Simulated assay, not measured.
Amino acid sequence: MAALLVSVLAAGLALAACAPSDPPSDSSLGALPPGVSVELIQLRSDVVDRAAQVRLVNAGEDDLVITGLEIMDPRFEESIVRDKRAQVTSGRTLDMRIALPSVACDADAADDAATIELAYEVDGRAATAAASIADPLAFIPLLHEKECLRERLADVAVLSWSGFEASDALAPAHLTLEIDPSGGGASARVETVETTPLLMFDAAGAAPFVVRAEVEGSGSPQRVRVPLVPLRCDPHAVMEDKRGTIFDVTVSVGGVVGVVEVAAPAEVKGEVLRWVAAWCGFGG
């Protein structure tokens, strides 16, 4: 009987050794597989949609199936979760698109770093890894800085474009920068408006338009009439325009100087593009 018991136990241990292991719990996260690396990048096409890419490079010997990921970064209000399956074979690179949460403006953008938990399968066996995730383009600190500055500015005033006035060729058109206080006791300063890939402010060159408007949160609205002339007159610049009516405005809020984007509304953008085409002589 003893010999039979020993034989049964030995067989059970052998079967256990051959069976696939259970997926590790959060307390037993492993390292990334050999040859695998991850980083965060933002492509030009991601910017408008406020998205980014998790780039996974599989230089290892095994094909991987990514079953999910979570990125933790204190500079965002929430973690970034992606639960779609994706395969990345050995020797290939995979970009996985993610939506970016709202920024957390009480976080220190200089010191915080992102980490990733990656769920994957190799030959049908599940595993989970944890690692830091690089940001080689350093787009997250810039995004955090820009959006937090915009939040602080919104507590003082809202900037917008209105009142486009078209012009004949060789004369400048005009667009009105609206500065509408939000209330409260804070203050800001609107310094300059920068040129766009399509528009500048006079024929002398691509210098910024100087505003230098002091803004009080409890003050009165201000209107600034900004002259415009085309920066370029090639037709495809109008046909393929994406950022020609999105202006970078330099502001100072609470001693912090930076740039906020102020886009013309769709109807104003249409008026501006039609005017550029007519001004340049290729409009209908």
Rank of each mutant, 00 (worst) to 15 (best):
P101L: 14
P101E: 15
S102W: 05
S102C: 08
S102N: 05
A104G: 02
A104T: 04
A104F: 03
A104N: 13
C105Y: 02
C105E: 03
D108M: 12
A110V: 00
A110C: 02
D111R: 14
D111H: 10
A114E: 03
T115P: 03
I116F: 08
I116A: 10
L118K: 02
A119H: 03
V122I: 15
V122N: 04
V122F: 07
V122A: 10
D123C: 11
A126C: 10
A127H: 15
T128I: 10
T128M: 07
A129F: 11
A130H: 06
A130D: 04
A131Q: 03
A131V: 03
A131W: 05
A131M: 01
A131D: 04
A131Y: 04
S132D: 15
D135H: 10
P136K: 04
P136C: 02
P136T: 04
A138E: 06
A138H: 11
I140Q: 00
I140K: 00
I140A: 00
I140S: 00
L143N: 00
K146P: 01
K146M: 10
K146H: 08
E147C: 06
E147Y: 10
E147W: 13
E147S: 03
L149H: 05
L149V: 05
R150W: 00
R150E: 06
R150K: 10
R150T: 04
E151G: 03
E151N: 07
E151R: 03
E151W: 02
E151S: 04
E151M: 06
L153E: 00
L153I: 04
L153F: 01
L153Y: 01
A154G: 09
A154K: 08
A154D: 15
D155I: 09
D155A: 12
V156I: 05
V156Q: 13
A157H: 05
A157K: 09
S160L: 05
W161E: 01
W161Y: 03
S162I: 05
S162V: 06
G163A: 11
A166G: 12
A166S: 15
S167G: 15
S167T: 03
S167V: 08
D168P: 01
L170T: 07
A171S: 10
P172S: 12
